[in-house]
Amino acid sequence: PIEDLFTSLNRHIQRSEFTQAVKVANQVLSVAPGDEDAIRCKVVALIKADKIEEALSAIQSSQKVSFDFSFYKAYCLYRQNKLDEALEVLEKQDKTQPSMLLESQILYRLGKMDACVDICRNLQKAKIDSLEINLVAGLISAGRASE
């Protein structure tokens, strides 16, 4: 039954066995095509397994799912260094902490250091671990080390 598959999926996720998790997510999808939890698990497991191209394909083939994969799609494009495309995807979605983090990383790679720093400063209230590292990197690269 599908509950057993989800139990197995959960176990693989807990153990960071991401390739196995993808396999079990596919088993769920073979009996329940379009299962949103299974598709989400599959996409995240592919990203965590560093299979970025496959993650993008999975996102592409899940158009009917109501979950908004924009952030994941933008992240995959960022990993492929398709920075302008990634920004385009982000601009179409509401701003969230993750999307702002990603935007700041994309801007950094694009050499837009002031914009990168602005976003990190906006996120400072959110107390995200290690955010200062990226803020300082942006400041130094912007020639604003004194700040």
Binding site: I2, E3, F6, T7, L9, N10, I13, E36, D37, R40, C41, V44, A45, I47, K48, F71, Y72, Y75, Y78, Q97, P98, L101, L102, Q105, Y108, R109, I128, D129, S130, L131, I133, N134, V136, A137, G138, I140, S141
Partner: peptide, 21 residues
Amino acid sequence: NPIVLDLAYNAIDFPSIENRM
């Protein structure tokens, strides 16, 4: 240039599937 951490990666989480088990 200084290293920038991939903090966006840490924000990518599995959905809760407790209620599916």
